[in-house]
Lab assay of single mutants.
Amino acid sequence: MGFKLLSKLLVYLTASIMAIASPLAFSVDSSGEYPTVSEIPVGEVRLYQIADGVWSHIATQSFDGAVYPSNGLIVRDGDELLLIDTAWGAKNTAALLAEIEKQIGLPVTRAVSTHFHDDRVGGVDVLRAAGVATYASPSTRRLAEVEGNEIPTHSLEGLSSSGDAVRFGPVELFYPGAAHSTDNLIVYVPSASVLYGGCAIYELSRTSAGNVADADLAEWPTSIERIQQHYPEAQFVIPGHGLPGGLDLLKHTTNVVKAHTNRSVVE
């Protein structure tokens, strides 16, 4: 069995187990497998329904001669939608809004960016022009300005110390501490036991640490421990890039980060 097929099978099995364990909360999309990078042309966006009122959005972007996937989250909030992270750029984010209108038909009224990198804030200006209120932590807003990236308009308070959590509509926002970046936030959907790890969490097929220019490698494993301790009931975990899975993604990420750190020390 090929690795790609095995990865998709694991996603399907995880979703099936969740649907059985929580039949009222989960209505997993039966329309197909989780979209992969090879299936999404740059400039297009796919939506994948995880649970009743919960979707991931998947886009792709060219970077350094390669094409990478990027995940975000959409959560229903009454007759409105909360968006977590842009679709990595203005063109993708405009396509995301169009796809949401086509498939869901509810307005996106608020959006949260989970850290300051372009795959999370690139497209904020498109959201703002569409009347979406954009939010991020003060740290993310400051770092985005320093980096020359787009800056969300509103500040999220109460997320300055490791372990801080605040309720934001249908989700809980959690600051686990520094990891992929010093400002990275985690998003949890309690009604569906869905954990969105953003770039602080890796997919299972990833074996290298990737972009760690703004990471705190020493603190990252401790931050992941905080996530595990705060959300032990999480059933569906979405990484910032690639295929979702279960809580095993947290341990896998820790292993990859520690291996990278150990290699760096040896070198």
Rank of each mutant, 00 (worst) to 15 (best):
G2S: 13
F3D: 06
F3C: 06
L5P: 13
L6T: 08
K8V: 15
K8A: 15
L9M: 09
L9H: 12
Y12F: 08
L13T: 15
L13Y: 13
T14H: 14
T14G: 06
I17F: 10
M18G: 14
I20P: 07
P23T: 10
P23V: 11
L24Y: 14
A25C: 14
F26T: 10
F26C: 10
S27Y: 09
S30Y: 13
S31L: 09
E33R: 11
E33N: 09
Y34K: 11
Y34T: 09
Y34N: 08
T36H: 12
V37N: 14
I40L: 15
I40Y: 07
I40V: 15
P41E: 14
V45F: 04
Y48R: 11
Q49P: 14
Q49F: 09
Q49M: 13
I50S: 04
A51C: 05
G53N: 11
V54P: 02
W55K: 02
W55P: 04
W55R: 03
S56A: 15
H57S: 04
H57L: 03
H57N: 03
I58T: 15
I58V: 15
I58R: 07
T60H: 12
T60E: 05
T60F: 11
Q61G: 04
Q61C: 05
S62C: 06
A66Q: 15
A66R: 12
V67N: 15
Y68K: 04
Y68I: 08
P69L: 15
P69W: 07
S70M: 03
G72M: 02
G72Q: 03
L73Y: 02
L73Q: 02
V75Y: 02
D77M: 02
G78M: 07
D79R: 10
E80S: 09
E80Q: 12
E80M: 08
L81E: 00
L82E: 02
L82P: 04
L83N: 00
I84L: 13
D85C: 00
D85I: 00
D85W: 00
D85G: 00
T86P: 00
A90P: 14
K91C: 06
T93G: 00
T93D: 00
T93A: 02
A95L: 14
A95K: 12
A95H: 15
A95E: 09
A98D: 11
A98L: 13
E99T: 11
I100H: 01
I100P: 00
E101V: 09
Q103S: 14
Q103C: 10
Q103R: 14
I104C: 00
I104M: 05
I104E: 00
G105P: 07
G105M: 10
L106A: 11
P107G: 08
V108H: 00
T109Q: 11
R110D: 03
V112I: 12
V112P: 04
V112D: 07
T114R: 00
T114W: 00
H115L: 02
F116H: 04
H117G: 00
D119C: 01
D119L: 01
R120H: 06
R120C: 05
V121N: 00
G122M: 11
V124K: 01
D125M: 08
V126E: 07
R128M: 13
R128E: 11
R128V: 11
A130R: 14
A130T: 11
A130P: 07
A130G: 10
A130D: 07
A130N: 15
G131R: 08
G131H: 08
V132E: 03
A133P: 14
A133Y: 11
T134C: 04
T134Y: 01
Y135D: 02
A136D: 03
S137T: 12
P138D: 09
P138I: 08
S139A: 13
R142P: 03
L143I: 14
L143G: 05
A144D: 03
E145W: 12
V146W: 12
V146F: 13
V146Y: 13
E147L: 13
N149S: 12
E150N: 06
I151D: 03
P152C: 02
P152R: 02
P152I: 03
P152L: 03
T153E: 14
H154I: 11
H154G: 09
S155M: 13
S155Y: 08
L156F: 06
E157S: 11
E157V: 12
E157P: 10
G158P: 05
L159G: 02
L159E: 02
S160C: 06
S161A: 13
S161W: 10
S162V: 10
S162D: 11
G163C: 02
D164W: 05
A165N: 11
R167M: 12
R167L: 11
F168A: 02
L173G: 01
L173P: 08
L173H: 07
F174M: 13
F174W: 02
Y175C: 03
Y175M: 03
Y175V: 03
P176Q: 02
G177N: 03
G177Q: 03
G177E: 01
A178S: 11
A179V: 06
A179M: 06
A179K: 02
H180D: 01
H180R: 04
S181Q: 04
T182L: 14
T182K: 13
D183S: 01
D183P: 00
N184K: 02
L185W: 02
Y188L: 01
Y188T: 01
V189W: 01
P190N: 08
S191M: 11
S193R: 14
V194K: 00
V194E: 01
L195Q: 01
Y196Q: 00
G197S: 03
C199V: 01
C199I: 00
C199K: 00
C199T: 03
I201T: 06
I201L: 14
L204A: 14
L204N: 10
S205V: 08
R206D: 07
R206Q: 15
R206L: 15
T207D: 15
T207V: 13
T207G: 14
T207A: 14
S208C: 06
A209K: 09
A209I: 07
A209L: 07
A209Y: 04
G210L: 04
G210P: 03
N211V: 07
N211F: 04
N211M: 08
A213I: 14
A213V: 14
D214I: 04
A215L: 03
D216K: 07
D216C: 04
D216E: 08
L217C: 01
A218F: 11
E219Y: 06
W220V: 02
P221N: 08
T222W: 12
T222R: 11
I224E: 01
R226C: 02
R226L: 09
I227M: 12
Q229K: 14
H230A: 15
H230L: 10
H230P: 06
P232G: 12
E233R: 13
E233F: 11
E233P: 04
A234I: 08
F236A: 10
V237R: 03
I238A: 02
P239L: 05
H241K: 02
L243S: 15
P244L: 06
G245K: 03
L249I: 07
L249Y: 07
L249G: 01
L250S: 01
K251L: 11
K251E: 10
T253Y: 01
V256T: 05
K258P: 06
K258Y: 10
A259W: 10
T261N: 15
T261E: 11
T261F: 08
R263L: 14
R263T: 14
R263I: 13
V265M: 11
V266A: 14
E267R: 12
